[in-house]
C-alpha cells in the first residue's frame, strides 16, 4: 500500500516538476518546488561514481533528529511560560490552561520566524540555483526558544532576517557560516532592542508591573540570595525565562537523544 502511494505521488511529482524546469514559466519557483517535493518524497538521486552505496542518513534526517532532541525543552517551556504567567497573576491554572497560554505565545513566534527566514532562504537558493538547505529548520525552531516570551513579533522577524542574511547567506549558506544564526538572532535583539531582552521585567509573560521576574543570577548579584529559587526549581526549570532555556532536565534529555543517535547529530550540539 505504501509503495503504491509513493508511486502515485512520484508520478504526480514527475508531472508537476516539468512546469518548473529551466525555460518553463514557473522556473523562478523551482527551489521552492524542489523543497516541497523532497519534503514529501525522498529524492530519487542515485550515486554517480565514487562510493556506489550510501548511508541512509541525509541532512533532513540529521536536522529532524536535532529537532526531536529539542522537543523536551520546547514542551516543558511552553507549559512553563503559561505557568509563570498565572503564578505572577496570583491565579491557579490547570495544566492545559498553562499549555494553552504558552502555545499562544510560542506559535505566532515560530510562524513569524519560519516565514521570514525561509523566505530569505528560498530567495537565495533560487538566485544561486541551489536547493533549499535544511539548516534553517533547526535555526527557526531554536530562535523562539531563546527569546523572551513577550518579545514583539516584528522584532523576531527582523532578528531572524538579520541572522539569516548576515550570519549565513552572505558567507554562502548553511555549512559556510562561522556563527550560529540562532544565537546571532538573539544577540541582534540584545544589542538592537535591549529593553525587551534584559532587566527583570521581561522573563514572565504578561506579568503585572509589581511582580519582579528577576533571574536567579540577578538576585544573587543584588545580594537577595534569600529570594532565589531552590536548586531543584532551577534544575527542573520552574523559573522565569525564555521558552527553551529553563529546564535543565529537558535539555539533558535532548543531549542524551543526540548522544544516542551518535553520528552526525552528536557533534551538532
Amino acid at each position: 500500500m505504501k509503495t503504491v502511494d509513493a508511486m502515485k505521488l512520484s508520478q504526480l511529482s514527475d508531472k508537476f516538476s516539468t512546469y518548473f524546469e529551466k525555460g518553463k514559466p514557473l522556473h523562478f519557483l523551482s527551489s521552492l518546488y524542489d523543497a516541497i517535493d523532497s519534503f514529501f518524497l525522498t529524492p530519487k538521486t542515485v550515486t554517480k561514481g565514487g562510493s556506489h552505496v550510501r548511508d541512509a542518513v541525509d541532512m533532513k534526517r540529521v536536522m529532524i533528529t536535532v529537532m526531536i532532541a529539542l522537543l523536551p525543552a520546547l514542551c516543558f517551556g511552553i507549559w512553563n511560560v503559561g505557568s509563570q504567567h498565572y503564578i505572577a497573576l496570583g491565579e491557579s491554572a490547570s495544566f492545559w490552561k498553562c499549555v494553552g497560554y504558552g502555545l499562544l505565545k510560542w506559535l505566532p513566534m515560530v510562524v513569524v520566524t519560519y516565514v521570514s527566514g525561509l523566505t530569505i532562504e528560498v530567495i537565495f537558493a533560487q538566485r544561486r540555483g541551489h536547493q533549499v538547505a535544511e539548516g534553517f529548520f533547526v535555526t527557526g525552531f531554536l530562535i523562539p526558544m531563546i527569546m523572551p516570551p513577550d518579545v514583539p513579533l516584528w522584532m523576531v522577524a527582523v532578528a531572524t532576517a538579520f541572522s539569516v542574511l548576515f550570519a549565513k547567506e552572505v558567507f554562502g549558506g548553511t555549512g559556510y557560516n562561522f556563527l550560529n544564526p540562532a544565537l546571532v538572532a538573539r544577540a541582534f535583539v540584545f544589542f538592537a532592542y535591549p529593553s525587551v531582552i534584559s532587566g527583570d521585567a521581561v522573563w514572565i509573560s504578561g506579568a503585572p508591573d509589581a511582580v519582579s521576574g528577576a533571574t536567579p543570577l540577578a538576585l544573587a548579584a543584588s545580594g537577595a540570595t534569600g529570594q532565589m529559587p531552590s536548586f531543584m526549581e532551577m534544575f527542573v526549570g520552574t523559573v522565569p525565562g525564555c521558552i527553551g532555556e529553563t529546564s535543565k532536565i529537558a535539555i539533558l534529555i535532548g543531549a542524551l537523544i543526540l548522544l544516542l543517535t551518535q553520528g552526525p547529530a552528536g557533534r551538532l550540539c
Binding site: 523532497s38 525522498t42 529524492p43 538521486t45 542515485v46 550515486t47 556506489h52 552505496v53 550510501r54 548511508d55 541512509a56 542518513v57 541525509d58 541532512m59 533532513k60 534526517r61 540529521v62 536547493q131 538547505a133 535544511e134 539548516g135 554562502g172 549558506g173 548553511t174 555549512g175 559556510y176 553520528g263 552526525p264 547529530a265 552528536g266 557533534r267 551538532l268
Partner: peptide, 18 residues
Amino acid sequence: NFNTSQHGDQRNFVMTGV
C-alpha cells in the same frame, strides 16, 4: 539490502565530525 540510492541530495559540508 543495499542499492545505488544516494538517499538524499548533495549539501554543503556541515561540521558533524562523522
